[in-house]
């Protein structure tokens, strides 16, 4: 006797469980939050490295405008002094247009405006330091001030240190959010699995008495949670990635001068892809352990 191929139904009918309705939504929300938190933390990591690199090798010398003193001559004097200092590499004085370009995000286009001539713009010199050579910033500042009164070194290190500390704290919060969301997802899977087991206690007892091993029952829960976690994880991940791309696009449009240099490196993207996969594996593993743990209490 031959019969046409028919679908083998699930013994536990978990697809009819309440978890089938709420678990994908909850997991989607969790993966969404975790991906955003991780992306934020990783973006801060890039920014901190970038900032640190810039600060350790660059200085800005600012020469305040003084009535009656020719700015060009004072900038030249300061440039000559800086070029003669050991440990100093490239010294680039910015011309008036360069200074105007720096101010453009705040004051608009000054190049042809009549008021530009009247503005007391400072002289600005960009200084690159040679790596590996010790240079006393206070000593350099004193010599500059003596040679060109009104010349000051903008040393960003102190405020950058505070900024980096804040960024590191925010990063820790980001990673903490990922961890907490992961733990909450695990707890959710545990509760959903326990509820599913409790509702099917009689059926599971019958399966046991017919000779089913715990792993046979656990596999059905694993398959169920796997399907739901994949569905929720994919939805949450897609939504988070779309939002991230939109944020990066908007940040690009605002302009580099206005926003700190925050972005994602290429190797951050595989990590963001791995997050929902890790969440899926964690959910399936949690379901299995929960079932095996609970069944161990039955005979």
């Amino acid at each position: 006797m031959t019969t046409p191929a028919r679908r083998i139904p699930s013994d536990l009918r978990l697809e009819a469980d309440a978890s089938a309705r709420f678990l994908p939504w909850a997991l989607a929300a969790m993966v969404f939050l975790a991906v955003l938190a991780l992306a934020g933390a990783m973006a801060l990591d890039s920014a901190v490295s970038h900032w640190r690199q810039g600060v350790s090798t660059r200085l800005t010398v600012r020469i305040a405008d003084q009535p009656g003193a020719a700015m060009a001559a004072r900038v030249n004097a300061a440039t000559e002094l800086l070029r003669a200092m050991p440990g100093v590499g490239k010294v680039t004085p910015l011309d008036r247009d360069g200074v105007a370009a720096l101010l453009r995000p705040w004051l608009g286009d000054l190049a042809n405006a009549s008021m530009a001539e009247a503005l007391p713009l400072p002289g600005v010199i960009d200084v690159e330091l040679l790596p590996g050579q010790a240079l006393s910033i206070p000593a350099l500042a004193t010599r500059l001030e003596n040679t060109v009164p009104g010349a000051q070194i903008d040393d960003p290190k102190p405020w950058l240190d505070r900024l980096v500390s804040l960024a590191r704290l925010l990063q820790a919060v980001g990673f903490g959010v990922v961890l907490v969301v992961g733990l909450a997802a695990m707890m959710l899977v545990v509760f959903a699995t326990r509820a599913g087991l409790a509702a099917r206690r009689d059926t599971i007892e019958v399966l046991h008495l017919i000779g089913a091993e715990d792993a046979y029952v656990a596999r059905q829960f694993q398959r169920h949670v796997s399907r739901l976690a994949m569905l929720g994880g994919l939805a949450g991940w897609l939504l988070a990635i779309l939002l991230l791309l939109a944020i990066l696009l908007l940040a690009g449009n605002v302009g580099r001068g206005m926003l700190p240099d925050i972005g994602l490196a290429w190797w951050h993207w595989p990590l963001l892809l791995a997050l929902p996969l890790l969440g899926w594996a964690l959910a399936v593993f949690t379901a299995r352990l929960t079932v095996l743990g609970e069944l161990r209490r039955m005979l």
Binding site: I8, P9, D11, R13, A16, T203, V206, L207, I210, G211, A212, Y216
Partner: peptide
Amino acid sequence: LDHLSALDNVALPLRIA
């Protein structure tokens, strides 16, 4: 098992084995 057909109920011991 109420949600299984007669055939699937009787098939359980064989499938489990």
